[in-house]
């Protein structure tokens, strides 16, 4: 291996570490310090506030449903994309990536236009049947599903490509029906990719802000999720509580990162 000269190596090393330290590590560290400035008082205050606990509850419910829905449809679409040929497949596969690069604000607006109760394309019909989508949890779940949609699919598709369909064909030829093949052959082999995708979309679902803000209407105590509470608290000059809720969110995302780091080697085996 060609050795890079010592000064260059040190220069690059210091540059990389300093950039990451000033941009990510120090700010996050400061947040943790500010949360615990008065011991556990900030955290306790925040957890005693019904606005905060309600929001945390709602976040968990919305994230749970979004992840379950994405799990079912993500795996279905991934299998569809890899195992079947149909017209428009390339277009579909390109559109799957769209939620990753489109602004959450645009996502919120798009859902608002279709599902709002007044002049929405589907919203008014749904409203007459007693289903309110916008400004209530179905809309928030949809927005969360939208932004987290590609994560599971993008994890599962390469693995499905890699394992090929030899085993599935063998199972078929031995008389297994489609369902048995899926549960006994396909699912076990993509298990880790699915788990990995679930962890990623859980992190994304809990952290979603822009799309949910528009769709939920941000009604205090009713449709306010944890990320929205952080904004509201901060702007109400209740910074300690904002820091405390942020700290909880940081903990969740760090936990997701750790889970991913543990899962990764297992998948490579």
């Amino acid at each position: 291996m060609v050795r890079t000269s010592l000064p260059t190596r040190w220069l690059l090393r210091v540059l990389a570490v300093a950039y990451v330290f000033f941009l990510v590590a120090w700010p996050v560290g400061l947040l943790v310090r500010r949360t615990f400035e008065g011991g556990f008082a900030n955290l306790a205050d925040a957890l005693a506030d019904p606005q905060v606990t309600g929001a945390l509850n709602l976040t968990l419910v919305v994230a749970f449903y979004a992840v379950v829905i994405n799990l079912v449809f993500g795996v279905t679409i991934a299998v569809l994309l890899v195992r079947y040929e149909f017209p428009g497949k390339r277009v579909l596969s390109a559109l799957i990536d769209l939620p990753l690069s489109v602004s959450p604000v645009v996502v919120g607006l798009a859902l608002l236009l279709v599902y709002n109760g007044r002049d929405g394309f589907l919203g008014s019909a749904l409203e007459e049947n007693g289903v309110q989508v916008i400004f209530s949890s179905p809309g928030m779940i949809m927005a969360t599903c939208f932004v987290a949609l590609p994560l599971i699919i993008r994890e599962v598709v390469p693995v499905l490509h890699e394992i090929g369909d030899d085993q599935e064909q063998a199972a078929r030829s031995l008389g297994a029906n489609a369902r048995q093949t899926f549960w006994r052959i396909t699912l076990p082999s993509i298990k880790w990719a699915v788990v990995y995708g679930v962890v990623l979309s859980l992190a994304r679902s809990i952290g979603e802000f822009g799309a949910v803000k528009i769709v939920s209407g941000n009604i205090t105590g009713r449709t306010q999720t944890a990320t929205l509470v952080v904004e509201a608290k901060y702007q109400n000059f209740q910074q300690p509580e904002a820091y405390a809720v942020s700290f909880l969110l940081v903990m969740v995302s760090v936990a997701c990162l750790v889970a991913v780091a543990i899962l990764r080697p297992q998948r490579e085996q």
Binding site: V17, V20, R34, A203, I206
Partner: peptide, 23 residues
């Protein structure tokens, strides 16, 4: 360093703003 690189991915964006605001 390798783990920290992923933090911005996992962090909710509003928290990212708050975190930068503190420094």
């Amino acid at each position: 360093l390798d783990v920290i690189i992923d933090v911005p991915f996992a962090l909710p964006t509003i928290v990212a703003g708050l975190v930068l605001l503190s420094l």
